[in-house]
Every structure is written in C-alpha cells, then in structure tokens.
Design a protein around this nucleic acid. Structure first.
Length: 492
RNA sequence: GUCCCCGUCGUCUAGCCUGGCCAAGGACACCAGCCUUUCACGCUGGCGACACGGGUUCAAAUCCCGUCGGGGACGCCA
C-alpha cells in the first residue's frame, strides 16, 4: 500500500500548548517512516485558529523536536519549496481554492447563524440522531443571497457533498466505511472568512506533496471530510495511517493537557532529567513492536526496523515506570564523560555547582559520577548526592533511628582516629585500615560502616563508602565525623 | 444518544490475518532469595492475562455471532 510517489510525510501540530507525549509520538512515527524510506519529514504549523495559537507554543515545539532529535527536512526554520509552512501565512492560497469550489458549485454560502446551528444540534442530540446540517442554505437563490448579504449577514462556506459512502483506506485501521448519512455539508470557511482545519489540511497535504498522512486516531473521523475535499478539488489522496491514542491511566482517557497536566508535557521530562533517547525508545514502544523480545532500540536501529505493519490497533497507557526503567538503562549506557556532561546542568540547577568547571574539578566530577554509578533514574537524581558538594545536609531520621540508636559515638571516634592516621589517604589504604580496625575490635563490619556512612552523607544508601571517603578527603571526613559524634552525644 | 474503533498478566506487548508448535512467550512494575559495608546493578525464582456467552471445528487466544466493557468522534477547535 505504499504508493510510488516519493515519501513525504508531515507532522502538523497546532501550537496551542507545548509539545505533548501524543504529539511527540506522532512526530516520531512520521520521522521514522520518512527516514526508513529515504523520504522527507515536513513540519507544518497548523495555526488556523489564531485565537488559540501562541508563538510560545510554536517555539517550544521546535525546541523539543530538536531535543528529541526529530529534525525536519522542510518547514519553519528549515525552509523548503512548498511555501510557508505556517498555515496562517497561507491564507491567499486557501482563498483561491474556496473560490474555485464556490465557482464550480461544489461549495455554497450558508447563512445559518451559530445559534441556529447550535439549536439544531441540541435537538438532534435530544432525539438521538447524529447532528447533521440539513442543507437549508443549499438551495438559496442568487436573490436570496444578495438580500442576505445586503442585510449584512456574513455567511460561512459549506462543502456540498455527494450521498455516497466514503471508505478510508488506512494502513493501520484497515478499511473504515463512513456511510453517506454519517456525513453532512460541513463548514470549510468560517463567517469571519478564515478557513477551517479540515479544509486547510487537505489543501496543504496536496500542495506539499504529502504521500502519507500519519496521525492520531482522533483524526479518523475527519478523514472522510478531507477525502471529500480532495474529491471536489480533484486531488489525489494520500495514504492514511491512524495511530491508536495514548491513554493517561488504566482507567483510560485520551492523554490531554487538561486532564493530565504536566504528565503530558515532553518539556517536563527534559527538565526532570530524562534523556531524549530514552524518551524516543519509550514512545516508539507505545503501539509498535519489533518482535517478541526486543525492548531497547537506538534511533538508527529504529530507522532500519520501523514499519507501519507492526503498529497495533489498540490504545496504550502511558506508564511512567517503563520510562524510568528505560531512562536508567540509557544513563547506565552513557560513558563516563557523557554522563558527567549530562549531569552538569542538573548540578547547576540544584545549586550544587556554581563555578565554572576547571580541569581539576572535571576530574573530581567524573570520579563522583563514576561512584554514583548506576544509581540514577533521572539525571536530576544527581542532587541526591549533594553531600559530595556541600557540608550542608541533614541526617535522615529513619537512618538515624536504625543505625545511630545504640549511640555509636565510640565506634565513630575510633574510626575517626584510624582515618586520621592513615598515611596515604587512598581507597585501598582506607579499606585495609578500616577492615583491620573493625575486625580487631570485633565490631561487625556493618555496625561500623553504616553509622559512618550516615555521619558522612546523612543517608543509609549510596556509593561504596571507601569511594566516598576517598572522594571527600581526610579533612572533610574528620570534620563530618566530629559533627556526627557531637550530634549523637548531644542527642543522648 | 449516533457513528467509528478497540478488548492477551497491574502496564507495554508477542501470538490472531495463514486455527494445532500456546497447559499463552518477553519486558516494566511488584514480591522473595543470592551477591554485598548500604543502596543500586547483576543473577535466580515467584506472582500474574486470552472480557463474557454462544457457535463452527477432531482442535479456537486465533474464524463467526451476540453481550458487556473501554476509547474516539459528532464544533463557525485542531
């Protein structure tokens, strides 16, 4: 079902908010499709509803698509041969087509008011009918129209549709039939002269040579309308593929900004320390699978392996657990330098790092990141290891309760002396000296280690203690031990 | 309400088209154990699903019908 035309697909968000999970997934599937077939991925801004669009949203969409690595071949910024890629800048083109339809008689002016229409719709609902426009203005005479125009009535423009069923041939959904009585003469131009989405979309898809329309299934019922427009204008149809929707919870609701707030915003995940690669991997597995075992895919692999045939038809639920697991996996797979660099902005954001990173500092940073190892789920988790950067930390009450209960001041005191007297303050020496001391004193290792850990970090978990001690340096270690011993003695 | 679509472990899914290889496989999550100075990683094991009811068939998760459940759409929004 892949046509012989060159593959050209588009992502056409309306800039009414920042990029959300569902939109990002649609963009990704389009992008992968284009890359897989060596075609073009086009970005178009569908901002025909000027009142709901904002520049801020538009910028955020650009920014986040770039962050995800979904760069576009044609569109705003990138340019291209198909004119402006922002619909609000294409009004003249739409007007031409409106006139064409009006002249050919395939469209007509409708003088029914919004209120009248609303009333008809409510009546239809009340009577259990599909609310359809009855075609009242379809048979207006030239005189009727002049009279109404003279009276200052501003008409909408409706497409005059035929009474045959429309079959949407869809790569994912199969053939979906819309019976003729499910369709009506719908409005293509508002009474203020601005064209509506279904109209501009059909025109731009044609004008931009779009071969495949891949979008969310919430657009499936728009498709017969767009097909009707194509028919009226003599356009060749693109191939359609409607993706199952992403639901917000097991209760099942389309993921939406209104209902799920920040949970849907891709930008939030960037801020929270998710890697774009993890996000991509997460998104692609929501509705698409390669086989019965593969979970991790690089972008290159996806380009090679992606196919529409393996997109499922049932809707998926956004599961943060899976995203977190993927993110952790991707962080783990970063090499030390990459991981350190990735973590840097988050250190700054949490105020743990203020100065510029000098060479020495970079080396120490890498050691810290190395010791933290695979403990981060998100990059922002680096803030949990703030004790490497600041003395200003509290003792975790639960940790204290468990490990400082017996008042291990004596043990800490002993350890303090051991640590203070180590000649070369390096990991191996520290380890040897401490084990020797603890074993000699017949103190269970864990009875010494955990209280010490809490004294140095405030918490009961984290990187290897010897790493921490070496990284902190003798001076800090002794200081923190004094503070802890003092705390314990005061508390008792 | 009307139209359209969907329904396999809590979640993402493999299997469905081309019935038997499925006493249904993988992954996330969860639980337990091992490893270990802690946490995390890793390893091992556990829990856990064909929505329901009919039919067709020697045989159904797979085909057909119905029911129920869920979602989407029904706009001078996109």
């Amino acid at each position: 079902m892949v046509s012989d035309k060159p593959v050209r697909v588009r992502f056409a968000p309306s800039p009414t908010g920042s990029l959300h999970i569902g939109g990002a997934r649609t963009a990704l599937f389009n992008w992968l499709f284009a890359r897989h077939f060596g075609g073009k991925f086009i970005l178009r801004i569908d901002d025909t509803d000027e009142s709901r669009s904002s520049d801020e949203s538009t910028r955020s969409i650009y920014e986040l698509l770039e962050w995800l690595g979904l760069t576009w071949d044609e569109g705003p910024i990138a340019g291209g041969d198909c004119g402006s890629y922002i619909q609000s800048e294409r009004q003249n083109l739409y007007q031409e087509y409106v006139h064409m339809l009006l002249d050919s008689g395939d469209a007509y002016c409708c003088y029914c008011t919004a209120d009248e229409l609303k009333q008809m719709r409510e009546n239809a609902f009340a009577e259990g009918r599909q609310p359809h426009y009855a075609g009242i203005c379809r048979h207006l005479t030239e005189q009727d129209r002049s009279r109404l125009n003279a009276a200052g009535r501003k008409p909408t423009v409706r497409l005059k549709i035929s009474d045959s069923a429309i079959i949407v041939r869809d790569l994912v959904q199969g053939d979906v039939t819309f019976e003729a009585d499910a369709l009506d003469d719908f409005i293509i131009v508002k009474s203020n002269g601005y064209p509506l989405y279904n109209f501009t979309s059909a025109i731009d898809d044609h004008e931009m040579g779009i071969s495949h329309v891949i979008r969310g299934k919430d657009h499936l019922s728009n498709t017969p309308k767009q097909i009707l427009i194509c028919h009226a204008l003599g356009f060749e149809l693109p191939v359609f593929a409607h993706l199952p929707l992403v639901l917000g919870s097991s209760k099942g609701e389309k993921l939406s900004k209104r209902r799920h707030g920040d949970l849907v915003a891709v930008g939030k995940y960037r801020e929270d320390g998710y890697l774009p690669e993890a996000m991509i991997n997460f998104l692609v597995r929501l509705g698409w699978s390669y086989d019965d075992k593969s979970e991790i895919f690089s972008l290159d692999e996806l380009v090679e392996k992606f196919n529409v045939e393996r997109i499922g038809r049932s809707e998926g639920v956004f599961d943060i657990n899976k995203l977190q697991w993927l993110n952790k996996t991707y962080i783990m797979n970063l090499d030390l330098t990459e991981r350190t660099n990735a973590v840097l902005p988050f250190l700054r954001k949490s105020g743990l790092l203020e100065t510029d990173v000098t060479k020495d500092c970079q080396a120490r940073l890498e050691k810290i990141v190395e010791s933290v190892g695979d403990r981060m789920t998100t990059l922002a988790d680096i803030a949990d290891y703030g004790y490497f950067f600041t003395d200003n930390f509290d003792y975790d009450p639960r940790a204290i309760k468990k490990w400082w209960k017996g008042g291990p001041a004596a043990i800490l005191q002993g350890l303090r002396e051991v640590l203070k007297s180590i000649e070369v303050f390096e990991m191996e020496n520290i380890e040897t000296a401490m084990w020797y001391y603890l074993d000699e004193k017949k103190i269970k290792r864990i009875r010494g280690m955990q209280p010490l850990r809490i004294a140095l970090t405030g918490v009961s978990g984290g990187p290897g203690l010897f790493d921490i001690i070496a990284l902190l340096g003798r001076e800090k270690v002794v200081e923190r031990l004094d503070r802890a011993i003092n705390y314990i003695q005061t508390a008792n």
